[in-house]
Design a protein around this nucleic acid. Sequence first.
RNA 1: GGGGGUGUAGCUCAGUUGGUUAGAGCGAUCGCCUGUCACGCGAUAGGUCGAGGGUUCGAGUCCCUUCACUCCCGCCA
Length: 594
Amino acid sequence: MNKYRTHNCSELRKKDIGNTISLSGWINKKRDHGNLLFIDLRDNYGITQCIIDKGNKNFLDLEKTQLETVIKIEGKVVNRSNETINKDIKTGEIEVAIDKFEILGTCKELPMPVFSDQEYAEEIRLKYRFLDLRRKKIHENIILRSKVISFIRDEMIKFGFLEFQTPILTSSSPEGARDFLVPSRLNPGKFYALPQAPQQFKQLIMVSGFDKYFQIAPCFRDEDARADRSPGEFYQLDLEMSFVEQEDIFNVVEKLLVNTFKKFSNKKLMYNKFPKISYLDAMLMYGTDKPDLRNPLIINDITEIFTRDDVSFEIFKKLVKSGSKVRCISTKNTKDKPRSFFDGIDKWAKDEGYSGLAYFTIEKDGELSAKGPIGKFFSKEAIMEIMKKTNSEVGDSIFLACGKQKELEKITSQARDKIANELELIDDNIFAFCWIVDYPMFERDEITNNIKFSHNPFSMPQGDLSNKNLENPLDILAYQYDIVCNGIELSSGAIRNHKPELMYKLFSIAGYNKNQVDEKFTGMINALSYGAPPHGGIAPGIDRIVMLLANEKNIREVTMFPMNQNAQDLMMNAPSDVDEQQLKELNLALKIKK
RNA sequence: GGGGGUGUAGCUCAGUUGGUUAGAGCGAUCGCCUGUCACGCGAUAGGUCGAGGGUUCGAGUCCCUUCACUCCCGCCA
C-alpha cells in the first residue's frame, strides 16, 4: 500500500463509510469552531471535508496548521446527516473523521490566497504561478489543454497521420517574424534560430515520402505580445499532406475541429461545413481577413453615391474625387436609439484616432428622409439607392466613413465590432468558423513601393502561369487559406509550390535572383529538385483553440508558465544575465545601448 | 517605438473640493465558540499611498518625470 494515500480527494462515497482510509493533499480551507475543526483537503481531483474535535490529541496542532500546508490524514469515513450534505462537491455525502495527521510540506504565509476565486494582479500571479495554478479555474483550464491535445493527437493518428519531431535549433529565415537567435559555440560568430514554425521541415518530410505528417510543434517568434498572442513561444498543430488539393486539407481540418469543439464545449457551432470567403470579399464585407461571423453586420461600399448631383455632402464628395472611398454599416431598426448611442460611436471613432463616423437614420414620415446631422445632404432618390445597396429598410441607420482603402478597412472593421457590441448582436454561445481563401500571392510594400510576397513565399499560385500572367503579379492568387473562429485567426496554410522553376520565377518578382534563392533556401530548393510530391498543409494554433474552448479572453489563462508582456518569466527570472565565461565561450561581447 | 488603463496593508479594494491620527473585507497573530462548507464573534499587529521631483501653510488627492503590470496601434511570411 502506498504510504501517502489510499484514495484521492474526490473518490470517497457513501459505500466507503466505516472504512479506515488515508488522504494526502493541501489544506484548502479551515472552519474552526473552537472545539470542532473542519478541514477541506484538496488535491488535483477534488475536495474532501475532514473533521476533528477537541477529544483528539492532534486537535491543537492541526488547528494552527497554515492553509496550503500539505498534510496526510488517516481516519474513518463517516456519514453526513441530511442537513449537512454538501451538493457542491463530489464527496459531499461523507466526511473523514481524522484520527492521525502528518505534515508533509509546510507553508509560509501566502502572498496570495489560493481558495479565493477573486482576480489578482498579473504580476503576483506570474511570480507565484505554482500557487496560481492550484486555483480551480486555471487548474481546470490546464487540464482541459492536456485533454484537448491528447484528443487531437488521437484523431490525427486515426486519420493516418504520423507524428514526427523537427529540430529546435535551426537556421534563421529571411521572411516572416523576428527570429530568436542562439549563438553557436563550435561555430564562432554564427547563430542558430529557433523555428518560427517547422515550415521547411514539414515540406522536407513530404519530399522524404512520409505522406501525412503532424506535430504539436513549439514555434518561436520574437514579436510583441497581445491578449491572444504569447510573447516568444506558442504551439501549433502542424500538419502536412502529400498528393492533395486544397479541398482535401479542408476536409481533414474541418472534421478535426468540429469533433474537438463538439467534444470539449457546449457552445453551438454556427456551421458544421465552414463557409469559404475570399480574401477580397472579406476585406470588403468585414474590413478584415479575420471576421467574427457571429456579428451580422456587413460593410458596403457606397462610393458611387457621392458622385451624384443630388448628394451635397461636400466633404466626402471632395475626398471621393481625389480617390477616397466611402463605406458604410447599416444597423437594423435603430431609429429609436438615443442620440447618445450615435454620438458615442462617433466619439469612439475619434478616440481611436479616426476622423469620426458620420451617421443618419432612414425615416418615413410621409416622405422618405434621412434624420441626423448629415441627413439633409441626401435626396430621397439617393437614400433609396443607399437602401438598395445596403439592403436597408425604413428605421435602419447608416454609419459612414470615407478614406483611402486601407484606413477605411480598418475603421469599418473596428466599427463593425464596436456597433455590434453596443447593440448586443453577438451571441457568445456560438462558435462561427470560416475559411478565408484566395489570398493574393503578392502585394505592394507601402513604404518601398516594391512588390513582395503577401504571405508565404512557398505557396502555390493559382491558375495558368504563362508569362502573361506574371506581368500582373498583383493579380495572382495563391492556394493560401486561413481558418478564423469568432474573429480569432486560428491557423493559416497553403498548397505548396513544389516546382523549383516556378519558385525561381515567383521569387524574381519579389526581387530575389536565383543565387539568392539558392543561398537562402538551400535545403528546400535542393530537395524540390529531386522529385517532390505535390503537397500542402496548415497549422492550427493550439493555444488559441484551447482559449476558445475554455472561454477565456487571454492566452495566459491556458498557458501553464507564461511570460509577461515584456517577455519575462517572473518566476524563473528569465531572461537573465550570464557570466563572462559563458559569453567568452560563445565569442560574444555585450554592447548595450543606453 | 506610440496611445490608453491601473498602481493605497500579505491579497482584493474604498478614500469626497487639497485639510487633523489613511479605512474596510479576506489573510496573519491571540482569545471565545461542537455542524460548518465564503462558519460566527472579539481583539492585536500590519502602510515608503509604485519611485523621484514640484506647486502649496498643507498632497494619497494637483503638476512634471520615471518605473511596474495590462490593453491597443505598429509588428506578427
